[in-house]
Computed example of a mutant assay.
Amino acid sequence: MNSFTKQQIQDYNRDGYLLVPEFCSRKETDTLYRVAIEDEAMRTNAMDLNDQSGKKTRLSLWFKPGNDVFGYLTRSRKMVQSVAALLDGDSPVCHFHSKLMQKEPKVGGAWEWHQDYGYWYKNQFMFPDQLLSVMVALTPATKENGCLQVIKGSHKLGRVNHGFAGEQVGADQVMVDNALKTMELVYCELQPGDALFFHSNLLHRSAANLSDKPRWSIISCFNSQSNLAYNETSTAWKEPIEQVPDEAILEWEAASLSEADFLKKENDPALKNTGWEADVQVRKDG
């Protein structure tokens, strides 16, 4: 895979997202999922974030992509070249952070409507067109287990004000409701190995996992080196990715994630109250 076609890039720019089936092979996905389950560092560094109903979503978040299997995925040629084709400008691609999302059966919480840039605005990144996320499904993502929902084309709204929804940050519900009247709601159902590329201003959410099946995914967030962040203490966001060949995911010896620089919940600027969140109406019905 050498990148995207002209049509795929146009689709991403129009819709704010692009779904790529079988971005990772079955063998690659099985390896990633096995490590996600078995790696002790992934478990011990997981954070619980409560939604408004009190249900929990567990996530482990780290910054610098290393020589572990997830680092090989985010540093792979197919990933870096694909991201480069979609980010605005031609600066080198940097890795902001990756997170393992763990929505367990029956107890996995919801994510309220938000834009990633609603969080990253607090990190004071300057240019939202130079930030995007890539979700790779490790297990099936369906309507039943709370797959990602997006509002097609909503990245063109620009940044929407955000307030707190439980321990999460949620978009102004008035604007969300207006967007839902105007644009199409899409359920992004994914099979293991499918990848969803999406713009930092795309409005998205996911429902609680009330099914009897887990929903696990890896989400890697990328930044152009030209996009400065003035309130971010990590440094990966400004360091060009050291690419590795795609076969590294399966063929190279992989280190443990114990070497990763995991985020501590208390150090996340997006979860700190700046005062203006109180003026934002976020849905209160869960």
Rank of each mutant, 00 (worst) to 15 (best):
Y230S: 05
S256G: 11
W237M: 07
E189D: 12
E167K: 02
V160Y: 01
E247T: 14
D172Y: 00
Q243E: 12
G158M: 11
K156G: 06
V176T: 03
G153A: 10
E251L: 08
L250Y: 09
M135Y: 10
E253K: 13
S256Y: 04
K152M: 05
L228Q: 07
V150P: 03
M175Y: 02
E242Q: 12
M135F: 15
A171N: 03
N231H: 15
K181N: 13
K156I: 07
M175W: 03
E232S: 08
C221H: 11
K213S: 13
E239V: 15
R215N: 02
E144Q: 14
F262Q: 08
R159A: 12
F198Q: 02
E232G: 02
G146F: 07
S220M: 05
N227Y: 02
E266H: 06
S211C: 06
E167Q: 08
W216E: 11
E167N: 05
G163Y: 01
V176Q: 02
R159M: 09
A254Q: 10
S258Y: 05
L228H: 02
S217W: 08
L202Y: 02
I241F: 03
E167S: 07
E184R: 15
N178T: 11
I249K: 06
A137L: 10
Q149T: 15
T235N: 05
A270V: 04
C221D: 10
I241Y: 01
A179Y: 01
P214A: 14
N223Q: 13
S226P: 08
K156N: 11
V136N: 11
N161A: 06
F164R: 00
P192Q: 07
I151E: 02
A236G: 10
E144L: 06
K156P: 05
S226V: 15
A208Q: 09
G193A: 14
N223E: 12
S258C: 11
E232I: 06
F222H: 08
R205F: 00
